[in-house]
Amino acid sequence: MARKKSKVTIDRNRCKGCELCVHACPKGVLAMSEEINEKGYFFAQVKNQDDCTACRFCAMVCPDVAIEIAVEEAGVSQE
């Protein structure tokens, strides 16, 4: 399957640093930051956007709904 271009956006100040998204991602797209957000947490951030397959696992497991995902118009699959 041809990979569609996608964009993962993480609201750093909503993130509580639980790391569940980092571990849920099958492609290692996400990583934890080395700085802290305004709540005092190390937050999740996008490290390798290009590897993202827009599988949404990161957003699904995020308890704080801090992650938004967008993809190119063509080839959007609906769960």
């Binding site: 964009k7 938004e68 995902i69 967008a70």
Partner: peptide, 8 residues
Amino acid sequence: MKTIFKRP
């Protein structure tokens, strides 16, 4: 780009 996941 089309948003496929966001806060409902």
